[in-house]
Amino acid sequence: MDEIYFAGVEGGATQSTLLISNKNGTIVGRARGDSCNIWLDGIPEVARRIAEMADQAKLEANIPLSIKFKCIGLSLSGCEQDSTNAALEKEIKNSFPNLAENYVVCSDTLGSILTIGSGGIVIIAGTGSNAVLRNPDGDTIQCGGWGHQLGDEGGAWWIAHKGIKTVFDHEDNLQKSTYNVEKTWEVIKNHFNIENRTDMLEHCYAKFQKSFFAKLCHKMSVAAFDGDELCESIFKDAGRLLARMIVALLPKVSSELVLSGHLPILCVGSVWISWELLKQGFTDELHLHKIPFELRLLKLKTGVSPALGSVYMAADFVKFSLQREYEKNYEIFFSYNENDKDVKEL
């Protein structure tokens, strides 16, 4: 059998990753690129970035640039609608006809789930936030994923915006913060290189960049770990909202998915690095609900990208049996069992 290759892309609102797999399931090439969100970047630009990453990964794998992928799986933020997904596929075929023989396009959440198995919940808390349940029969249910104008609760943009809005409301005497705002305000000023609140308007409107806004979140996490109570409280609220997204999906979990007595929940995105700041709010929210099975929070092992699930998806799309060992892709970092209110760090 001639050598064939599959590719998978995990495209976020800040950065993206493309992986190439050979027919044995071995990753032979990878590349990283800019964001691949069709709503923020536009379909033509996303298509160009995907093609650029593909060329970079082929060079790393020592594969001729002329080789077409058997199939490429595109799991991208913003790809929630069949119509826009079809438009992206058409753009790639027209502009880069030698990229792949087959295409499958879906939301970034779905590709992430397939990295750990055939079903479960994935909750993304990166620049934005989104949660999707996939049952073993392929049925999917979404909570969130509506972007910063309509959602993104618990994501990095939301955390950054919450910090800024809290400071502004406090200074306006509109809503006084119960915490000292001085440290958070200093962090904000340093991040945006501003001196006063009026300077902030340019970043909010004329030169608004969602990804740059979201990068404030990391600096707020540093302040929180250093004891800033306002930043701590915002991360606690974020944890509560992320847990609420999971709870919203639980009524749709199929009995087949939890036959083992536990539900796998893959946590993806940079906000989860600050789990210790999220944990209290997260567990406080879970305590408010009766959950009849164990919740297991998973994270991908170091070096494993959600793009791997997109590779699996590409192989499945053309009914190719690609070797995979799911248990090698993730580790459990937290377990919650409502039956005895047992909360375990693993």
Rank of each mutant, 00 (worst) to 15 (best):
H191V: 11
H170W: 05
T178I: 10
G117V: 02
T140E: 13
L114V: 04
Q142P: 00
S118V: 07
S177W: 00
I113Q: 09
K176W: 00
F96Q: 03
E195R: 00
E202V: 09
G151W: 07
G163C: 10
K183P: 05
G117A: 10
L99N: 02
A100S: 11
G155L: 05
I194F: 00
K162D: 12
I164K: 00
I123C: 09
C204A: 11
W146E: 00
R197E: 12
G128T: 05
N98E: 06
D139K: 10
S118Y: 13
E195L: 08
N193H: 10
I123D: 04
I188C: 02
L110K: 14
T127H: 06
G145C: 04
Y205Q: 01
L133F: 11
G163W: 03
A156F: 03
G151I: 08
Q142T: 11
C204T: 08
K183M: 08
K176R: 14
H170Y: 07
G154D: 07
A131F: 09
S107Y: 03
M200E: 06
W146Q: 02
C143L: 04
K176L: 14
K189Q: 15
P97C: 01
E101V: 01
G119A: 09
W158P: 03
I194H: 00
A160E: 07
R197P: 08
S95C: 07
G154R: 07
C143I: 11
K183Q: 11
V122I: 10
C143E: 06
T127G: 03
K176G: 08
Y205L: 02
M200N: 06
F168T: 02
N102F: 00
A100P: 06
Q142F: 12
F208P: 01
T198G: 12
A125M: 06
N180G: 10
G120Y: 14
N173Y: 10
L150S: 09
V167C: 14
C106D: 14
Y179R: 15
V187W: 02
T178G: 15
T115P: 10
G154L: 04
N173I: 00
D169H: 12
H170T: 03
G144S: 02
S118E: 15
F96G: 03
G144I: 03
Q209A: 12
K189N: 15
L150W: 13
S118D: 15
G163P: 04
G145W: 03
I113G: 10
P97S: 01
F212N: 09
N180E: 12
E101M: 02
R197G: 14
S211A: 14
W158I: 04
A131S: 10
N135H: 13
D139R: 07
Y179C: 15
V187S: 05
R134S: 11
T115Q: 09
K165T: 12
D108F: 13
V181S: 09
D137V: 05
Y205G: 00
G154P: 05
W158D: 10
S118L: 14
L201W: 05
